[in-house]
């Protein structure tokens, strides 16, 4: 489970201080499906980055599965990120020179698994995501939907407890976006905590819990 207590994150733009997160406290239980919505600059992406350990809060306490992760070293945070958190981005962020299979394999390489074990797991995931015939294609040769499926496969191959999606359908047309959402929701059904940041009302409404943000603060939280 995720527990944020009085999290503050401040950015400095010139001599101006921007409080992207202002004293935010939030509990998300394991297996929840949460959407975070709000206008641009409301701090929703920063919240997701803090939850995903990509960004360090300036103050406050963050507990993940019962242990304080704010105090961890950079290397330990990287390990937590690798094992417990999966990221899905609006612009997919696939490595262009690597094939679909190689992109999916990356977290396994970082984890230090043996090549034989990696191959087994990548093949299984390619099959589960219906990408087997695209395994040796590079991102440039894939459609947007396929790219996001590869990205989701990569984010989930180490079976993280939480899947964080930042505008996962922002670069996709409506039909493909719906397919991708269905895929993410299927992963949620199998037990993964799913947190989606979006400003698409229709998309946000599909979640079981809706968090609204404005000016770095949570202004709505309803189930």
């Amino acid at each position: 489970m995720i527990r944020l207590t009085s999290i503050t994150r401040v950015f400095h733009m010139g001599d101006q201080e921007v409080r992207a997160l202002n004293d935010v406290s939030l509990d998300i239980a394991s297996g929840e499906y949460v959407s975070i919505m709000g206008p641009s600059g409301s701090g929703k992406s920063t919240l997701l980055n803090v939850i995903g350990l990509l960004d360090r809060p300036d103050s406050g306490r963050y507990e993940l599965d019962g242990s304080d992760v704010t105090a961890l070293s950079e290397t330990e945070q990287a390990r937590v990120r690798r094992e417990k958190i999966g990221f899905v981005f609006q612009s997919f962020h696939l490595v262009p020179r690597l094939t679909a299979a190689q992109n999916i394999e990356l977290p396994l390489i970082l984890e230090g698994l043996a090549p034989a074990e990696r191959k087994l797991r990548v093949d299984a995931v390619l099959d589960a995501f219906d990408l087997t015939d695209r395994a040796t294609h590079r991102p440039a040769e894939l459609s947007g939907g396929q790219r996001q499926r590869v990205a989701i496969a990569r984010a989930t191959i180490l079976r993280p407890t939480a899947l964080l999606a930042d505008e996962p359908t922002g670069n996709l047309d409506h039909r493909i976006g719906a397919e991708v959402m269905a895929l993410l929701e299927a992963l949620h059904h199998s037990g993964t905590t799913l947190i989606v940041v979006t400003h698409d009302r229709e998309l946000g409404a599909r979640a079981h819990r809706h968090i609204a943000m404005r000016d770095g603060e949570i202004v709505g939280d309803e189930k």
Binding site: L54, E74, T75, A78, R79, R82, F89, H93, P107, L110
Partner: peptide
């Protein structure tokens, strides 16, 4: 790409 590697859990040393 470096940002992505960090996001999927690569420590700075890697």
């Amino acid at each position: 790409e470096i940002g992505l590697l960090k996001a999927i859990g690569a420590p700075a040393a890697d």
